[in-house]
Design a protein around this nucleic acid. Structure first.
Lengths: 179, 179
DNA sequence: GTTGCCATGTAAGGTGTTACATGATTTA
DNA sequence: TAAATCATGTAACACCTTACATGGCAAC
C-alpha cells in the first residue's frame, strides 16, 4: 500500500486533515493517485489503528469540523524503515505503445492522427509540469538537501514529458518519410 | 481492461493458446503485466463470450491438449475501434520519487546507498532491454511500417532507462557536492 | 435559494498480483 | 524417480477508481 507511505510522508512534514491530503494529492503531479481519491480516508483510519498517527478534532468557528492527523514516532519509524528497505522500482505503463504495436490496420492518415493526438496530450502534460514546477507551491524546504531532492524530482518529471514529445515527433517524421 | 486489447493484438498477429500468450507477456518488456499472469485465462473466456475470439482444442500427440484461440472479425473490429478512440496516456508511477521526497531523515551515506541501489536496478533494466531489443525475438514484421513502429518503441524503452540512470547519477553527484 | 466549496465517509467495481490446484509429458 | 516444462484454471487479495451520500457554511 504505497499510499500509506505517501500519507506518512506528508504528515512527517506537518499535521494535516484528510481533506488537506486530498488537495495535496490533486496538486502534486508527481503523485499518481487520481483526483477525488477517498482511499485517503480509509487509509487514515488504518494508520490510526496501527498507531502511526494520532487524531484530534478541530472544531472550527466557521465551517465544519476537521480531523487533524499527526504522525507518531511509530509512524516516523515506519517511514524510515520503508526508505531503508531499498528503492521502489518504477512502474511505467504505456498502453499507447500497445496501440502502436498493433496499429498496422490503420491508414497512414489515421495513424498520424493517433500520434498527433498523443503528441498534443504529452505537450499539455509537459506545460502543466513546467508551470507547477515554476510556481513551486508545494515545497517543505526544511533543508538544502531536501530542496535539491524536490528540485531534481521536478526536473526528471519534466524530462520525461520532454522526451516523450521529442520521441513521438521523431516517430511521426519517420512515418511520413516512409510513405 | 487494457489486457483485453493486448491479447487481441497478439491474436491479430497469429492464433495462440493461453499458455503461448503467457510466455509472450513474460518475454515482452514493453508490456507491464507481471510474469505468471493467469488473468489471461479469465480474459480469454470473456473474449470468447463476447464473440471476439473462437477456440478449438489441439489434441497434441505429445503433451497435454491446448486451446488455440483465433481472433474473429468482431475482435479485429474491437481492436480497430480502440485505436480510433484516441491515444491512451502513460501511467508513470515512481514510488522511488516518493521515497526521495521524504528521505531527509536519512544520513548522507544512507541516502547515497538508496540512490546507488536504484541506479543499479535501473542499469540492470537497461541492459535487459538492450539485450532483448538486440535479440529481437518478438517481431511480427508484417510490413516496413510495423517494423519501424516496433523498432521505435524499443528505442523509447531503452531511452527511458538510459535517462533514469543518467538522472540518478547526476542526483548522486549533486548530493555528494553539497556535503 | 441555489451553486459551490469545505469536510468526511461508504460501497461497488475494475484491474492486476499472488497463491494454490491439477495433471500430463519430457528430461536428467 | 525426481525435477522441469507444458497447459489450464480457481480463489483470494491488494490497490486504485468511481459513484454515491451527507451536511455545514459562504457567496451571489
Amino acid at each position: 500500500m504505497a499510499i500509506k507511505y505517501a500519507i506518512l510522508g506528508f504528515l512527517s512534514w506537518q499535521a494535516l486533515s484528510g481533506y488537506d491530503l486530498k488537495k495535496l494529492f490533486e496538486q502534486a503531479y508527481f503523485l499518481y493517485w487520481s483526483g477525488n481519491n477517498n482511499q485517503i480516508y480509509t487509509t487514515l483510519v488504518q494508520l490510526h489503528k496501527d498507531g502511526a498517527v494520532t487524531t484530534e478534532i478541530d472544531h472550527q468557528t466557521s465551517g465544519p469540523s476537521r480531523k487533524i492527523y499527526t504522525i507518531t514516532d511509530e509512524g516516523r519509524q515506519q517511514l524510515r524503515e520503508w526508505l531503508l528497505a531499498g528503492p521502489e522500482l518504477p512502474q511505467l505503463r504505456q498502453p499507447f505503445f500497445l496501440q502502436l504495436m498493433w496499429a498496422d490496420t490503420l491508414s497512414p492518415v489515421e495513424l498520424d492522427e493517433l500520434c498527433a493526438a498523443y503528441e498534443h496530450e504529452m505537450a499539455i502534460q509537459l506545460l502543466m509540469c513546467q508551470e507547477k514546477a515554476r510556481r513551486n507551491e508545494l515545497d517543505p524546504a526544511r533543508s538544502d538537501r531536501e530542496r535539491l531532492l524536490w528540485q531534481l524530482i521536478a526536473e526528471r518529471w519534466i524530462g520525461f514529458y520532454t522526451e516523450e514529445v521529442a520521441w513521438v515527433q521523431r516517430l511521426r517524421a519517420e512515418l511520413a518519410g516512409k510513405e
